[in-house]
């Protein structure tokens, strides 16, 4: 482990332990480390707009930290009435009209401003991390953290990290032509213990008492050897999980292999090439998300991820049966 990586790792550990990291000076990795933690350890409430390709959505998010408990409420504003409430690692989905609640204990899904999937040392292996200008956003000062990829297999990213707490107020993903292809921006925001106060807890507890919660999901995705592997994953992409996942309208769970470089991730799915066999490759791109479908005899490989299409293509074409 390099000295830099060691420093980054210890800073990561400190962030976990203390819930906040002191002002990180001019060290880009320290800024990144603090931004990773701030999404979990900061109390805030706000509304953000997410644009990916030609799609835009607006979401209200309230995130409260009470001791060791993390509560989060996520409401899409331009959709039918429903919301997510997350308590630590349990995610509840509410449908107010139907008075129905659904629970998933195993989900790892997190939403903006939590965008990082790995310790900063992993991210720094694939991206140059630099500090940019300071900007004034919604009454807060935030400093841009610039992540430029070492190669063309992933996109450049920019995070504007609030100078006091480290919370990410804006995030952008850039194409190779430096055009913004995905963006998250808070349009209103309150940060600090007063921002979420009690209403989150009240809503949560009132509903859990009133409605049934489903403590046991029907099926669980099983970690498993799928019998497939990727012979040429792009540099920096590590396999983070391999499983057989139940999917809609399938008799059998579908093999899925997930790769990540700490920021960008992609999934490989392999299914029988039936009942309407594909004979040609198909691809699609929208914003940061690429699809690449590659038929291999009696199977069809689908690669999907927040990566350039060329990356999805390389992965799809190098999927092989394990010996």
């Amino acid at each position: 482990m390099s000295a830099a990586a060691r420093a980054a790792f210890s800073a990561f550990a400190v962030g976990v332990a203390c819930g906040a990291v002191a002002a990180p000076g001019d060290d880009p990795l320290a800024w990144l480390t603090r931004a990773v933690q701030a999404a979990r350890t900061t109390t805030f409430a706000g509304t953000f707009v997410h644009t990916n390709g030609d799609r835009t959505s607006t979401v209200r998010i309230t995130h409260a930290v009470r001791g060791s408990e993390e509560h989060e409420r996520v409401e899409p504003l331009d959709a039918p009435a429903y919301e997510i409430v997350r308590r630590n690692d349990e995610m509840y989905c509410y449908f107010p009209d139907a008075k129905t609640v659904k629970l998933d204990r195993r989900t790892t899904a997190r939403f903006f401003p939590s965008l990082f999937a790995a310790p900063v040392a992993t991210i720094a292996a694939s991206y140059d991390v630099k500090l940019g200008a300071t900007e004034h956003v919604l009454g807060y000062d935030c400093r841009w953290i610039r992540l430029d990829p070492h190669d063309t297999m992933r996109y450049a990213q920019r995070f504007c990290s609030e100078t006091t707490t480290g919370l990410v107020l804006r995030a952008k993903t850039l194409s190779e032509q430096q055009q913004v292809i995905e963006q998250y921006t808070f349009t209103d925001l309150k940060v600090g213990p007063g921002a979420a106060r009690v209403d989150l807890r009240q809503i949560f507890e009132a509903r859990v008492k009133r409605w049934i919660s489903d403590a046991k999901p029907l099926d669980e995705a099983q970690s498993a050897q799928t019998g497939w592997s990727v012979s040429q994953p792009p540099a920096g992409f590590e396999k983070i999980t391999e499983l057989k996942r139940p999917l809609a309208a399938r008799a059998q769970p579908v093999p899925q292999i997930v790769f990540s470089d700490g920021l960008a991730s992609l999934s490989v799915f392999v299914e029988p090439n039936s009942p309407q066999p594909r004979s040609a490759e198909v691809s699609s791109e929208n914003g940061t998300t690429s699809f690449f479908v590659h038929p291999v005899g009696q199977y069809v490989v689908t690669v999907l991820g927040e990566v350039p299409l060329a990356t999805a293509q390389q992965v799809a074409r190098s999927v092989v049966h394990k010996p």
């Binding site: 995610m91 008075k99 659904k102 999901p217 029907l218 996942r245 809609a248 799915f269 689908t302 999907l304």
Partner: peptide
């Protein structure tokens, strides 16, 4: 099916993982 892939990729819960549950007095 592609939508199912996207849902699975983002490690979001898929519908098979859920039972609908309804209101009742004493959950």
């Amino acid at each position: 099916d592609e939508q199912a892939y996207l849902t699975a990729h983002r490690q979001l819960p898929s519908p098979e993982l859920y039972r609908p549950v309804t209101n009742r007095a004493a959950a």
